[in-house]
């Protein structure tokens, strides 16, 4: 296999031309998001360049502290983003969401790196990209799950009130909402598994093949990461909701939404 062709800056700049295509479609269809397009592209570029520089430094000077610090910052951001998308939940619920996301994410990352890949958790080359994928997907899953849960309990307030008035216990009332939200959070991952290899060659596998890894090795990694992603989504949403819904009622079994 050949090593990947490094992009020189001139060639690389060509890809930005494609943004002009997006821009012209937006103008034509009067989509008023030009500002977002510019901000998003610039932010992405700056953030990724920074990540590139930091990773280069860490790979050149591998030290457990750097790896741990990188993961902690990533986890912190994932929690922050998941909570920011669900601002209206109560304070304790937010803490539970953050704790569930961090604990499930870190547990799955450790299992993946130490048991499946079989390298040290402090090895930045494996730990950093793998935890990025796992944390990112866990964050999306948790955001979606909590959002679904929260929207449903508000839109179905009449049902909750009717059951509360009848003397049904809050856990019995809220569990179906939690189950529904876990399902909603899990479905995108499960659905994407169906088309994998036929309609999509996932990013990690594509990247590995481009950089010269044997396709059979690349698919093993891909299968492993997708299973890890579905596990982390399921586990983090389950923990967030299973412990989180308890913040919605008090000792007198009164619902406080």
């Amino acid at each position: 296999m050949n090593d990947i062709i490094s992009l020189n800056i001139g060639q690389f700049a060509l890809i930005y031309l494609l943004l002009l295509v997006v821009l012209s479609v937006m103008k034509k269809c009067r989509i008023n998001q030009t500002k977002l397009l510019v901000v998003a592209s610039v932010r992405m570029t700056v953030q990724l360049v920074l990540a590139g520089l930091i990773l280069t430094y860490i790979f050149d000077n591998p030290h457990p502290v750097f790896t741990v610090l990188y993961i902690l910052i990533m986890t912190g951001f994932a929690c922050y983003m998941a909570i920011r998308r669900n601002k209206t939940i109560n304070r304790n619920f937010k803490w539970i969401v953050a704790a569930s996301l961090s604990a499930s994410g870190i547990a799955i990352v450790c299992f993946f790196i130490m048991a499946v890949v079989g390298v040290s958790i402090f090895n930045p080359q494996y730990t950093i990209p793998i935890s990025g994928m796992i944390m990112g997907n866990a964050m999306t899953g948790v955001s979606l799950g909590i959002k679904t849960f929260h929207e449903n309990i508000h839109s179905q307030r009449a049902r909750i009130d009717a059951l509360v008035n009848m003397g049904v216990t809050p856990p019995r009332i809220l569990t179906p909402f939690a189950n529904q939200a876990i399902e909603t959070a899990l479905l995108p991952t499960l659905n994407s598994m169906l088309g994998m290899g036929i309609i999509s060659l996932p990013g990690m596998m594509t990247g590995q093949i481009l950089s010269g890894t044997l396709p059979m090795t690349a698919i093993l990694y891909q299968i492993a990461i997708i299973i890890a992603i579905s596990a982390v989504t399921c586990l983090s949403v389950f923990c967030a909701l299973f412990f989180g819904y308890r913040t919605l009622y008090n000792k007198r079994n009164q619902i406080i939404i």
Binding site: G167, R252, N253
Partner: peptide, 17 residues
């Protein structure tokens, strides 16, 4: 016990579900 109380003193609220 709040749950037993609600079963004994049953409230049929205005919003029907």
């Amino acid at each position: 016990d709040p749950i037993l109380l609600r079963r004994e003193v049953l409230l049929v609220s205005q919003s029907v579900y």
